[in-house]
Design a protein around this nucleic acid. Sequence first.
DNA 1: ACCGATTTGAAAATGATTTTCATTTTCAAT
DNA 2: ATTGAAAATGAAAATCATTTTCAAATCGGT
Lengths: 157, 157
Amino acid sequence: MAQHDFFGHMWWHGRLRGHGYRITVPRQVILDVLHSREGHLSAEDIYIEVRKEYPQIGLTTVYRTLELLVRMGIVFKFDFGDGRSRYELSEGPEGFRHHHHLVCSVCGRVIDYSEYLDSEQQLLDKTEAGLSEKYGFKITNHLIRFYGLCDRCQSGE
Amino acid sequence: MAQHDFFGHMWWHGRLRGHGYRITVPRQVILDVLHSREGHLSAEDIYIEVRKEYPQIGLTTVYRTLELLVRMGIVFKFDFGDGRSRYELSEGPEGFRHHHHLVCSVCGRVIDYSEYLDSEQQLLDKTEAGLSEKYGFKITNHLIRFYGLCDRCQSGE
DNA sequence: ACCGATTTGAAAATGATTTTCATTTTCAAT
DNA sequence: ATTGAAAATGAAAATCATTTTCAAATCGGT
Ligand SMILES: [Mn+2]
Ligand SMILES: [Mn+2]
Ligand SMILES: [Zn+2]
Ligand SMILES: [Zn+2]
């Protein structure tokens, strides 16, 4: 089990090395936190959590490491409009984790969903081809998000 | 023509009044600027432009007015990731202006597009119904955006 | 163990947006 | 046209997430 976790969490090890980056304690602890907490964490959320394991960590290092991980595609960075960036591991145990978000306009809650990715892909294929042709734009990435009221916030509005 | 502009630009007049807001000079000038410049303007862009007509304007008022207009659905507020919010009139001369954006990851250019809205609507209908059922989420709004390389930025990468 | 290059962390800087508050403007009632 | 209460404005200060600076600590190939 510790062995399993070891192999399960060390995949990014080689990835960093491959890009010439060093494996450091802060980076390990930050990645541990990202693995342990499934959610949409702010830099400060992560900072607070990391401090429990490694109290000398600096918030600066958290920001820098997140930037690095985002640049390498290991972490996603989102802006849900609450004034701070939110970070999330881009791949789970079963590989790449393609999903989108439902954002409650009232309480700010964010819900992951991954339904209808097939229908979505149909639209994307058609759209990407057309836009590529019309605007000469080479699409690499997309953002789909729904805003509205979560179940809790519907009773009373 | 002046007459046409008058009627063409005064529709928001009644809208503000209807909500109990006053018609003020700063608000008129800010809306004029939003009408005159088709684009994705930052608060400061607007501030600079408004100052030409009304030099005593304060940046604070620009922010406050934009917030008001966004709250009333007259203006859209976007975050394209360059550290400042971008604002855009939500309706053009032909009515509500439903469109999405292509964002160049290299130069930051933002291109409007409104193709494939019908195909998009199909996906949205299906998705909204399903998500509403599964998560009890009442969708009011959506965000679709493509990232990639604009034509200019493709030669050389 | 050693050394040069990379990484870290504390403190200061940055910069967009918000808050404060005294003054000015709007507009319904006179 | 005048008045006055409420709403709106603008200058300055405050806020606050993120970035920059730079001296000290750490990493990893030798
Ligand atoms: Mn998510
Ligand atoms: Mn637009
Ligand atoms: Zn909610
Ligand atoms: Zn470009």
